[in-house]
Write a protein that binds this DNA or RNA. Structure first.
Lengths: 343, 343
DNA sequence: CCGCTCCGTCGAAGCGCTTCGATCTTTCGC
DNA sequence: GCGAAAGATCGAAGCGCTTCGACGGAGCGG
């Protein structure tokens, strides 16, 4: 392994000079800098990460905690994770992968040992067990998701309440008066995962305000479950003319079942989803949907983290950032069938 | 931050003693050990990762390189990644997340700087650009996937060729004489991703040996693409009575389309998939399928890596490990319709 | 032409940990 | 009962890097 000292010797300068060339923290004359750079190149020098972390007490690593549950839409998770890694790399940081399984202690471990300078948490519950560790100044952290009490925390998320409202608005605007919500899997609600409840809240508020009927049913993504939920909904509220789907894996089963039971989309029923754009575009009927901006979430999380790292008391050091939802109308939504209106 | 020295002072021993208590590399008397442990507990001591890495030249970190492409089945990737992280943690190692984007240089960077002791690569292509870096002794590495020339490399993968053969065997055993393969997306073949080509090889070999007709068509997962491919297949080979699907996202569209065109599964056509068990179980028709053992792959990869780390010239230090495929018969496969036979 | 201020560079002191002798007891075999 | 081996602990020397204070020399104002 090539060390700083060897580079220094090779370039005929002192070790500290090489260090300053690398860090730019003190002025170095152009010729010297060139010479040092050349030596680094020739010897294939790579600074030792541990030594660096020790001397500077900055590891240039951030930890990312991903859930290991699989009842959420997994591709979104991976996309966020990849966006985090990519953004962090662009800033010279690496990303340590932590699984949710380890819980709060993992956060203490990686920050307490100086392994990671900061953490990003995904899949935050409304009342998350990892939050106590993060309150106060503890380790710098950004949550992707919104807990019940975000005071003193730094959060980024899609504004799911607004997303829910947007769906209802869109459908009500088209003339629908009875809307059914095919929700996330029951486990998501049982765990009080923030996004599911917030979407529901937004849906309900707006529905109430607009005088639109709203029926919500949790639903996991298997075909049979969707079939059961659909049957119940149609049984309880025959007048339902539109569906809002928040469970991405339920999208295709739902479309397929509607088709099979002779309901055309969007002529007979409208379907609106909250899902990644890719899913909406490739569905058997291109879906009118509020996009889940996975990449953007990952990127923003990292950017907030760096803002905090750079200026611990700066404006972005804490607080909640909710991304405004965007609804893209595609082919799955339209006015309700005429007979309904004239009934 | 609490240091080793402070713990030592608190416990009334020397620093080295504390270190030996922690590492167990030299015998320490029971009373002393207890005292030290108590001090560690009381002070909340956590060894500094960087200092450790520097002094011992072992970072206790392995790097995991995930693809950032999304034309493969993403949940499998995440599942492997999580399995890697979990298994590594059980051995006291952490996992650094690298994206494929960075390419070979990232491998050099993280191993050359001592950040990671070893690497695991996912989504290996038949002729992968990252392989040259890994040949020889370079950084210890395990590939999940199988390149064209695995000489000198350490690989784990599902035996996709055998998986393909197994599918054909199963269908031929039921009496099918014409089989169509709905393959991965065209990009997968264009990139020469190993698993796709190997599956196809296995399918073809076995089909040829058993005298069964085989038609292969790449297909990306969108509904429209599946519809197009299905139409072509039925047009070109009307006698096809069974499908093998390797593209998980194409599964539901295919089932839905078969249904719509009045073909009952499995009465009229059989469908066999190569996909994760979860997908097979939750499909609208539970699928006869060869499971992709994502967790097992992740686990085995880490275990092989540790074997290599522990004993660099041991038996497991190199070579290929192919997991035997397992086909589980569910409800999507059965004998071909009788009229076909008597035609 | 003198004292001052920068600029560019160096030397040395750590950062917190591991590890290698070395030292001092014990314990044990014969 | 004595030497040798094993057990328990310590001190010190790094690991490779960052960073602070210092220092010689050049450039400048007066």
């Amino acid at each position: 392994m090539v060390t700083l000292a060897e580079v220094a010797r090779h370039a005929g300068v002192s070790a500290s000079t090489v260090s300053y060339v690398l860090s730019g923290k003190r002025p170095i004359s152009e010729p010297t800098r060139r010479r040092v750079r050349a030596s680094i190149e020739q010897l294939g020098y790579q600074p030792h990460a541990g030594a660096r972390a020790l001397a500077s007490s900055r590891s240039r690593i951030i930890a990312l905690m991903v859930p290991l549950r699989t009842d959420m839409y997994v591709p979104v998770m991976l996309e966020i994770a990849v966006a985090v890694a990519t953004t962090a790399r662009a800033r010279g940081y690496d990303v340590l992968l932590l699984t949710g399984e380890e819980g709060p202690s993992a956060l203490r471990r990686v920050t307490g040992s100086g392994l990671a300078e900061a953490v990003i948490l995904m899949d935050v519950q409304l009342d998350d067990g990892r939050l106590p560790v993060l309150r106060g100044a503890a380790p710098p952290a950004v949550l992707v998701g919104l807990p019940a009490d975000p005071a003193g925390l730094n959060c980024v998320d899609l504004d799911f309440a607004a997303a829910g409202a947007l769906c209802v608005e869109h459908l009500a605007g088209l003339g629908h008066r009875e809307i059914a919500v095919v929700g996330g899997s029951p486990g998501v609600y049982a765990r009080h995962t923030g996004f599911a409840e917030r979407t529901l809240g937004g849906l309900r508020d707006r529905a109430a305000r607009l005088g639109v009927g709203l029926l919500h049913r949790p639903c996991d993504g298997s075909h049979d479950a969707v079939a059961g939920v659909l049957a119940r909904i149609l049984d309880e509220r025959p007048a339902v003319s539109a569906f809002v789907v928040q469970n991405e894996t339920a999208v295709e089963p739902l479309l397929s079942l509607l088709r099979r039971t002779g309901r055309a989309v969007p002529e007979d029923v409208s379907v609106v989803a909250v899902c990644p754009e890719a899913v909406a575009e490739r569905a058997s009927v291109p879906l009118t949907a509020v996009a889940i901006p996975a990449q953007e979430l990952g990127r923003r999380a990292v950017e907030r983290l760096f803002a905090r790292l750079t200026d611990p008391d700066g404006p972005a050091a804490t607080g909640v950032e909710l991304l405004a939802p965007v609804l893209t109308a595609r082919e799955s939504s339209g006015p309700p069938p005429v007979r309904r209106r004239t009934d």
